[in-house]
């Protein structure tokens, strides 16, 4: 397993002093993602999907429970994991630094590793269906779909074994969504990375996921094979979600 969450709970305390309330964004969540596999994580807004992804990426420490990446707990120094996991996040508008050229953004994960990008940036752009000339542009010159392609190129450039896609296509037009989802499948076939694909849209997840996990109110209510899930969901909540599709 590339990623293993066991009985993970994440609690946040919010509100003013004296009237603090505790909220479990994740409660007893166990999930795993195998090498090369795509786990689709679905659930309505606020169900704890993003928190789950932050735990999986080591950005959020669980209140209780264990997380293992590639069989080991997260190292104390983030740098030790550099390049082995990447993410494509939600807002196409904020996914790229507006002050950096596209080429610099794509090369950044390599720069962090102290590696020279060389010819890798034009190659990476080409892989996601963009001309190499995009490297000299700034993000505001690109459409939302093109920016998400750039984010994917940036995520892929270190050939990570695990990539999180958190609502990566949700803000895009449906026709553009389809293009990006197709691109993802092609790239995964080529590079074999494992993925946690998060979306509130079951239709989008169906396109790419091998297995599906359904979250509701911080808990995973059902985990199933994609084919089984879409034909015969077990949990009443899953059925409800699928009916509204």
């Amino acid at each position: 397993m590339i990623l293993d969450l066991t009985d993970v709970t994440v609690s946040f305390t919010t509100g003013p002093p004296l009237r603090r309330t505790r909220l479990d964004a994740m409660r007893g969540v166990s999930l795993s993602v195998a090498e090369g596999e795509t786990l689709g994580l679905v659930g309505e807004s606020g169900s704890g999907k993003t928190t789950t992804s932050r735990v999986a990426l080591g950005l959020q420490r669980p209140t209780s429970g264990t997380v293992r990446f590639d069989g080991r707990p997260f190292p104390r120094r983030r740098k030790d994991l550099a390049g082995r996991m990447q993410a494509v996040l939600q807002h196409p508008h904020w996914s790229l630094n507006p002050r950096m050229r596209i080429g610099q953004s794509v090369a950044e994960p390599l720069a962090v590793l102290g590696k020279d990008a060389g010819s890798l940036v034009p190659e990476a752009l080409e892989q996601v269906g963009l001309e190499p000339g995009f490297a000299d542009r700034y993000p505001h010159e690109l459409s939302g779909g093109q920016r998400q392609r750039v984010s994917i190129a940036r995520a892929l450039i270190t050939r990570p074994s695990f990539i999180v896609f958190d609502e990566a296509v949700s803000a895009l037009d449906v026709s553009v969504q389809v293009q990006i989802l197709n691109l993802l499948k092609d790239l995964q076939a080529e590079y074999g990375f494992a993925a946690l694909f998060i979306s509130h849209d079951l239709g989008a997840v169906r396109y790419v996921a091998d297995r599906i996990a359904v979250m509701r109110g911080g808990e995973v209510v059902e985990t199933a094979d994609a084919v089984t899930f879409y034909s015969a969901p077990e949990h009443p909540y899953s059925r409800q979600l699928l009916e509204s599709l």
Partner: peptide, 26 residues
Amino acid sequence: ERDYVTAAAISGAGLPRILGRHILPN
């Protein structure tokens, strides 16, 4: 809070890079 800062942190970027390349220019 923007995604490019999170993405840089996930890539393993250290504090000097995040502050100098991402936050200061913006």
